[in-house]
Amino acid sequence: MIEIQNASFAYGKEQVFNNINLEIKKGEIFCLFGPNGCGKSTLIQCMLGILKLTKGMIMLEGKNVAQLRPFEIARKLSYIPQSHEKPFPFKVMDIVLMGRASYTGIFSLPDAEDEAIALDALEQVGMHRFKDKPYTQLSGGETQLVLVARALAQKTPVLVMDEPTSHLDFRNELRFLETVAQLVKTAGLTVVMATHFPNHAFYFENNQVRTKIALMNNKKIVAQGFPREVLTEIHMSNTFNITSKVVSYQWEKGHLRYIVPLKTY
């Protein structure tokens, strides 16, 4: 689906990441994991074509992202940002309809079909009751679900998320992860997700979603593979300078793994 080849990015002389190679396959959740400032968000913006790589390339279904036009990318990749400023109190439905922009000309309006798709997307995330509510009145979790609905209305095979749960409370975080897992399992979507929390990757793996994780540190990929292979106590120690314990527990659905941080050093 997405192949990242020898990708490097720099703001002027300041190198953000260097020589990164990744492959993201259809139908999997791909977690980008690493400490603050390791370049996850930058990499995501390069994938979306918002920033341009200084070296290397990103192939999207065999085409170089740098040579695609915005609407072409937007029909393949949809984006759920980490935080979303709300300059105007648009209605929930207005926000979700914006997902249809890449299918609409510059001088046209969304039509009835677009509205049907948007409504359908809202139902998929369980937010259709809110469709006429100003989205400024939604909670952080609800807002994030509306943005997922907007991404779904975009009808893309891949959803790209940049730390989507960072402003959510405990329950909303879980609700969000459930929704994403559900979408990948039932709709066959591919998800790329930058995250601070190793247990997100374990959550997906524990729920039998095909999950990959890449550990980013010091401007490069340190390790990649299944969460159980990458999220080891040694990697955590090398990357974050912490002592941690991976605990596992057998339950009715199978093997349950979580990482428990113990202390910094």
Partner: peptide, 23 residues
């Protein structure tokens, strides 16, 4: 004519581009 595009531009540059707009 382009009034709907103004909605999308008000989402900010990053999001608007990700929604498929040539900013």
């Amino acid at each position: 004519a382009m009034r709907w595009r103004l909605n999308i531009l008000s989402m900010g540059d990053k999001e608007a581009q990700a929604l498929g707009i040539n900013i």
